Structures are given as structure tokens and as C-alpha cells.
Amino acid sequence: MIVAEQVPERDTRKKVKWKKRVWKWSKILTLVVILVIVFRAFLFTNYIVHGKSMMPTIHDGERIIVNKIGYEIAEPKRFDLIIFHATETSDYIKRVIGVPGDHIEYKDDILYVNGKSIEESFINHYRDDYEDGTFTDDFSLESVTDSNYVPEGHVFVLGDNRQNSVDSRHIGFVEYEKIVGRVNFTYWPPNNLRIFE
């Protein structure tokens, strides 16, 4: 005759507690994974910068966080740093210089928007150290695009490193639909953490 041995009540309680803990942590981890996926897919994403077109503001190899939702509720503003789809396989980081309706011109290294000179403090120290002549070559909007004004639903962008940047002077206006989002901050390397407003 086989006699079943009763499991002590204490052991049963331990197993039940352990199973409840595992179940609780599984739910928490699942929720975290879902939140991370939603966060990355719809709100924010990160990029590694390749190249020197945004120096000295952003350096080659730095990692940045991009706000993807901001332009769903507002339009790009002058001097925003943006990421956009430049080609089928490449995204670029550039600075918005012109918004819809703007006429852009550079003369004697000075930015003119709608005939008024505009200070570009973010490149002043780089421009001052630049020894190879003019930092931003003279041009007008109509000389580099087929328009006198930035059209609706588009922006005109430049890299901060004006002599080493493929930007709207070469590729034309950037459509709003191609903008991934606005650069919020750099997070790597940690000693170079910066927030962009």
C-alpha cells in the first residue's frame, strides 16, 4: 500500500509566495518593456552623431536624445537642432535657419532673415577661431534653391560647421514630414552632457 506523504503547510506557503513574487515581477517587467517600446517608438529616440558638420555644438561620436512628439503639436522654430530623413538610408542633424515665409541671405559672414541681421551666438567662438577666410560663404536663398522664400511645410537648415556641411545649400528645403524630431540633449560621453532649448 502506497501512502502519500503530506507536504508540510510551511513549504506550501513558501511555494505560493514565491510564485506570487515571480508573477508580480513578471507583470512589472512586461509593463516596463511595453513602456520602453512605446517611449522609443512614439516619444523619444537616440542617435549617434557621425561626422563633423555640427561642430562645435555636437561632436562626432556623441549620443543624442531626440524628441519625436514635439513637432506633432508645434512647428520647428529658428535655430532648433533637428534630425531628418535626408536620404532613404541616412538621417542628418542640422540647425533650422529659415522657417516658412523667411527670406535667407548671408553676406560678409552675417545671417540676414527677411532683411534683418540675426545673431548666431552658437557659432561665434568657432567663427572667431576660423582662420581660413569666411566662415559662411555669401549666398542668397534664390542662389541655392529655386525659391525666394522658404515654402510652407518646409525649413531651411545649415550645419554649424559651415565649411564642412551638406545642408539646404546642397539638398534644398527639408519637408516637415521628413523631420524625425528635435534634439533635446547629448548624453554621451557623460562629461559632455548638454541640454538644448
Rank of each mutant, 00 (worst) to 15 (best):
M1G: 15
V3W: 05
E5L: 08
V7H: 02
P8F: 12
P8L: 08
P8V: 10
E9D: 07
R10S: 09
D11L: 03
T12L: 02
R13G: 01
R13F: 06
K15C: 00
K17V: 00
K19I: 06
K20Q: 11
W23T: 07
K24F: 14
K24C: 03
S26A: 13
S26K: 08
L29S: 09
V33F: 13
I34M: 09
I34T: 14
I37H: 11
I37K: 14
V38T: 13
A41K: 05
A41C: 03
L43I: 09
F44V: 06
F44K: 04
T45Q: 09
I48Y: 13
V49R: 04
K52Q: 13
S53N: 13
M54C: 05
P56S: 00
P56V: 01
I58W: 08
D60M: 10
D60S: 15
I65T: 15
I65E: 11
I65Q: 11
V66A: 11
N67R: 14
G70L: 04
P76R: 14
K77E: 15
F79H: 12
I82M: 08
I82L: 11
I83R: 07
F84A: 01
A86L: 00
T89S: 04
T89F: 03
S90A: 03
S90K: 03
D91Y: 15
D91E: 12
D91M: 13
R95N: 02
R95H: 05
G98A: 06
P100S: 09
P100E: 05
D102I: 13
D102H: 06
H103D: 02
H103L: 01
I104R: 10
I104D: 04
I104S: 07
I104K: 10
I104A: 06
E105L: 15
E105D: 11
Y106V: 07
D108L: 05
D108R: 14
D109P: 02
I110F: 07
Y112E: 00
K116E: 13
S117Q: 09
S121T: 08
S121M: 06
F122K: 04
N124I: 06
H125Q: 07
Y126L: 00
D129F: 10
D132M: 07
G133M: 04
F135I: 03
T136W: 01
T136F: 03
D138F: 04
D138K: 10
S140W: 00
L141S: 13
S143A: 14
V144S: 07
V144I: 08
N148P: 00
P151R: 11
E152G: 02
F156Q: 03
V157Q: 11
D160S: 08
N161Q: 09
R162D: 01
Q163C: 02
S165N: 03
V166T: 14
D167C: 05
D167K: 05
R169E: 03
H170Y: 05
G172N: 02
G172K: 09
F173Q: 01
V174R: 13
E175G: 07
E175C: 03
E175H: 15
I179V: 08
V180F: 01
G181I: 02
G181A: 03
R182I: 01
N184W: 15
N184Q: 12
F185E: 12
T186M: 10
T186Y: 14
Y187W: 15
W188H: 12
P189D: 00
P189L: 00
P190I: 15
N192S: 10
N192D: 06
N192K: 15
R194E: 08
I195T: 12
F196N: 06
